[in-house]
């Protein structure tokens, strides 16, 4: 919505003097400082708009690509109940992608452009979805850890300064909590099952732990966008704060499952009342971001194929709608 309105707004802005722009910027920041929300047609600095388009579309792409690793198990889920649950979860991810694309579009970028950026590799999506899902336990670990980390990241965004993004996030968070719980339930079933099932659960935790805590992004010192995003209230907590929170709540859950977190340096610190943990392999993170993770090529290939294979459906639906409109116009 409002796409056309934004174009004219942009043109108007060209006529503004530097002093006028500075005044608008001051008013904008005052609104943000007062915890007021910014809505699509309100004036906003270009950099704020660009930051939001980048973040919201990355988030949308992550939801869409995120359907792939789990979709891998829909036909092989161990029971009808698990299959129904997994389908509902994957449908939710698709829906979340749609909410987020909608929110991004209010900033004046078209859906086609966004999809194009994903398919050409120009846009990023969460590095976590470039890891494979070789066993059923991976579906449990993804729900528990990956969705758990996503929720930790997303809850503060429900109070983001940009209205449409915040509203999309409220819906998403409400729906995500079932995702995490169903994942934990799978882990519980496996961890308390046969020794082989227990080993499967441990193996999944071993493979997903480090990629999950990388999901919070680089350390604060290395995070180039954090300070500005916090000033704009797009972001409310730093990467390291959120990562620490996630580790603090997840370690006791692993203990409950009787599983071992694959970090020999992990230990409770009485003084800080937080867990201390080992060094993250940032080289691995960078490699996956650059496209060299285990499944990067496969994921993009699957998205491109789906987009190409669906093209005739989109074109046919459009042609049919145009034909009907023309007929109705002729009859009137």
């Amino acid at each position: 919505m409002y796409t056309q309105g934004l174009d004219s707004l942009g043109a108007d802005c060209l006529h503004l003097s530097a002093a006028e722009t500075a005044a608008l910027e001051r008013r904008f920041q005052a609104k943000v400082d007062d915890d007021e929300r910014i809505e699509p047609r309100d004036w906003m600095p270009d950099a704020y708009r660009q930051t939001l388009v980048r973040q919201i579309s990355q988030h949308a792409h992550s939801e869409i690509v995120g359907m792939l690793p789990e979709g891998n198990w829909i036909t092989r889920a161990p029971s009808l109940r698990r299959k129904a649950v997994l389908m509902a979860k994957v449908q939710d991810e698709g829906g979340h992608g749609m909410y987020l694309y909608s929110a991004a579009e209010t900033l004046g970028v078209s859906r086609d452009e966004l999809i194009d950026q994903l398919l050409t590799g120009a846009a990023k999506y969460s590095s976590i979805f470039n890891y494979p899902t070789p066993t059923w336990a991976d579906v449990g670990a993804i729900g528990w850890l990956v969705d758990g980390a996503a929720i930790m990241n997303q809850i503060p965004i429900c109070r983001c300064s940009y209205g449409p993004y915040a509203r999309a996030m409220v819906r998403i968070c409400r729906e995500e909590s079932f995702h995490q719980r169903q994942g934990f339930e799978i882990m519980m079933t496996l961890a308390s099952g046969t020794p082989e099932q227990h080993r499967m659960a441990q193996d999944a935790l071993d493979r997903w732990w480090w990629p999950s805590i990388m999901m919070f992004g680089p350390n604060d010192a290395a995070s180039k966008h954090t300070a500005q995003s916090m000033r704009w209230k797009i972001k409310r907590f730093s990467n390291d704060e959120l990562r620490q929170k996630f580790i603090d709540v997840t370690v006791p859950q692993a203990k409950f499952l009787g599983l071992r977190i694959p970090d020999p340096k992990l230990e409770w610190d009485e003084v800080t009342q937080h867990y201390r943990f080992g060094e993250i392999d940032w080289n691995e993170f960078q490699q996956v971001l650059k496209g060299n993770g285990p499944c990067n090529r496969e994921r993009l290939e699957a998205r491109r194929r789906a987009h190409e294979d669906g093209r005739w459906v989109r074109d046919a639906a459009m042609a049919y709608a145009e034909k009907r409109r023309a007929r109705e116009a002729a009859a009137a």
Binding site: M1, M98, Y99, S102, A103, E105, R111, R167, A168, R314, A317, M318, Y320, A321, R324, R325
Partner: peptide, 8 residues
């Protein structure tokens, strides 16, 4: 509640 793309 939001928006959606559709042919008609």
């Amino acid at each position: 509640v939001g928006s959606i793309h559709a042919a008609d």
